[in-house]
C-alpha cells in the first residue's frame, strides 16, 4: 500500500508517495538521497540514524514516514555544510570526536538535540536533584544523555569533549 507523505526536510518541502512500510530512515536515504543519516541497526539500538523531528532528536529507523506527514526534519546535511560548518560539526573535527565517521552524523544530530533538552532543564538519570529546574552541562550528564548513540570506534571521550566545547558557545 502506498501513502502520501508531505515532509519538510532541511527546509525543503517534499511530497511523496511511499510504501506504508517505508521508515523515515529509508525515505531519507533511498528516496531523497540524503545518505548522511546512517543505518546501523534499524531497531533503535544504536542511534546512528538520529535526526531532528520538529527540533527533537529521534531515531529515523523507528519512525514510519507515513506517521510524520507534515513534520519538519533536519538531518546532518541540514545542520551545516563543508563550507559553513555548524559549531557542533566544527567541534567534532577539532576534538577528533570520531574515527570511521559512520555514527558521527547521528552523534552530532543527537548532541544538538541534547543541548536543547538541557537548555529546557529536562532531567536525566544522573541528575542529582530532580526538583532543580536547571541542569548543569557537566561530563556525567553529557555521557548519560548521549548513551543512545553507540560509537564502536569508541571515540567517546573526544565526543564528550567536543560537545562540552560546542555547548559553551
Amino acid at each position: 500500500m502506498t501513502v502520501d507523505v508531505g515532509l519538510t526536510v532541511n527546509g525543503v518541502r517534499h511530497d511523496l508517495k511511499v510504501d506504508s512500510r517505508t521508515t523515515l530512515l529509508d525515505l531519507l536515504r533511498e528516496h531523497l538521497g540524503l545518505t548522511g543519516t546512517k543505518k546501523g541497526c534499524d531497531h533503535g539500538q544504536c542511534g546512528a540514524c538520529t535526526v531532528l523531528v520538529d527540533g527533537v532528536r529521534k531515531n529515523a529507523c523507528m519512525n514510519l514516514a507515513a506517521s510524520l506527514d507534515g513534520r519538519g526534519i533536519v538531518t546532518i546535511e541540514g545542520l551545516g555544510t563543508e563550507q559553513a560548518l555548524h559549531p557542533m560539526q566544527a567541534a567534532f573535527i577539532e576534538h577528533d570526536g570520531f574515527q570511521c565517521g559512520y555514527c558521527t552524523p547521528g552523534q552530532i544530530c543527537s548532541a544538538v538535540g541534547m543541548l536543547s533538552e538541557l537548555k529546557r532543564g529536562l532531567p536525566s538519570a544522573v541528575t542529582a536533584d530532580l526538583r532543580e529546574a536547571a541542569v548543569d552541562m557537566v561530563e556525567a550528564e553529557v555521557r548519560e544523555r548521549m548513551s543512545g548513540n553507540i560509537c564502536r570506534c569508541a571515540a567517546y571521550p573526544n565526543i564528550v569533549a567536543a560537545i562540552l566545547d560546542a555547548g559553551k558557545a
Binding site: 532528536r57 531515531n59 529546557r120 532543564g121 538519570a125 541528575t127 544523555r145 548521549m146 543512545g148
Partner: peptide, 29 residues
C-alpha cells in the same frame, strides 16, 4: 513525563524509572 515539574517533585520514583529506560531518542518518541 519525566520532565514534568509535578512528576519530578512528587513522584520522583516515576521520573527516575522513566529516565532509566531506553535512550533519550527513544524516550522522545
Amino acid at each position: 513525563l519525566a520532565g514534568d515539574s509535578h512528576v519530578r517533585e512528587h513522584y520522583p520514583v516515576l521520573a527516575r524509572a522513566v529516565l532509566n529506560g531506553a535512550s533519550a531518542q527513544l524516550r522522545n518518541q
